[in-house]
Design a protein around this nucleic acid. Structure first.
Lengths: 197, 197
DNA sequence: TCCTTACCCAAGCAAGTGCTTGGTAGGGTA
DNA sequence: TACCCTACCAAGCACTTGCTTGGGTAAGGA
């Protein structure tokens, strides 16, 4: 309680980062506490000085990431853009999240279904629902405003949208040739205009 | 060697089907031989009367599925359609594969990266390469023939295409309201024409 | 000097992992 | 009768898993 102002650049967050990378690479269940400890140069038991359990590590990773992401989404939704513009902004924010929180997105993408089975991670299901409402809401509003093509199967388009955005974490590498803005531009062009001549 | 004509409707294939469902639901590493045995109503040791190992089960599942899938792809590629028509046909064949071999596609989608680490599954990498060549070849030919928009980043479009098609296995349910042809139609419309008005 | 805090090691436990072994029951074949 | 086959059980082995326990050390404040 004494160090309330410091952003805690400590060993703890360092270890959390190491765990994040391994979870993202091999999956949560497939990563052992000994793997994490080895990567950190300590013994597995020593990890339990910093964390209660392996679960609490992912929990902390996913929770902080999602809180930050939804702050952006809420901001976009509350802005005074048109539905189509909001859709574009949400897509851009998502690709930026893949860039800035690559490991967390990968963990969420690969292990959310497994983790959602535990009571502790019930919030994952809630977030998914909220996510769905955000996207389908924007799509429906876009069709109503005439910005998007009439007769779209909103539910189906939502699924394609959601999956295509997040699955990019499988090949996108932060620091590579493509910036998240580049990818978002290309993707939005395909999505909005199609690839036909 | 006596029953050469029968398609072997035996206990073996039955067990393989049970294993496929579990592998698809929980992931390969996350599924134990005891899980499979329990689902089949036998003890875990009894599985080894039918199969050499847990690995050989996925191996058989993935290999037979991919052989069948590539028979279709090769047929399409060798046909005398235009590049764009071939692209559409490949997309349709892929969605049909998701319908007919749902578990196998899910296993491939979720565990291919992990399995590719073993020598035994080196063919997964080769197939991936062949897959890439198929898609990028069709896209490049489509741009050259004027059917697809000029200036497309073929590599990026390929990734979007590949991921979006296969990730559908996460939400598509065989026997549901949507046929694979329905999904393919909707998807191709979005891909080719976009969602803008 | 004493105590606290942060950090780590060495050793191990209970549960679970893939897989092996020796054996049994029922049926077919010569 | 003698032999082999398919299909399975019961028991267990060697190993890995997440996590615990009981220490130890270095730094810093009172």
């Amino acid at each position: 309680m004494s160090a309330a102002s410091t952003p805690e650049p400590s060993r703890r967050s360092e270890l959390l980062g190491i765990a994040a990378v391994l979870f993202a690479e091999r999956g949560f269940k497939n990563t052992t506490v000994r793997d994490i400890a080895d990567a950190a140069g300590i013994l597995s038991g020593s990890l339990y000085h910093h964390f209660d359990s392996k679960e609490s590590m992912v929990d902390e990773l996913l929770d902080t990431f999602q809180t930050e992401l939804w702050a952006r989404y809420d901001e976009i939704e509350a802005s005074d853009r048109t539905p189509k513009q909001k859709l574009e902004a949400v897509v851009r924010a998502s690709f930026q999240a893949i860039d800035e929180h690559h490991s967390e997105v990968a963990i969420f993408q690969n292990d959310a279904a497994y983790l959602a089975g535990f009571d502790r991670f019930a919030y994952l299901g809630e977030r998914n629902l909220k996510f769905r409402e955000l996207w389908t809401g924007l799509l429906t509003a876009g069709v109503a405003s005439g910005e998007l093509r009439a007769g779209l199967d909103v539910e189906l388009v939502y699924r394609f949208l959601r999956d295509t955005v997040w699955v990019a974490v499988r090949w996108y590498r932060p620091g590579g040739a493509l910036t998240p803005a580049d990818v978002a531009d290309q993707y939005l062009t395909i999505l909005l205009e199609g690839i036909s001549q």
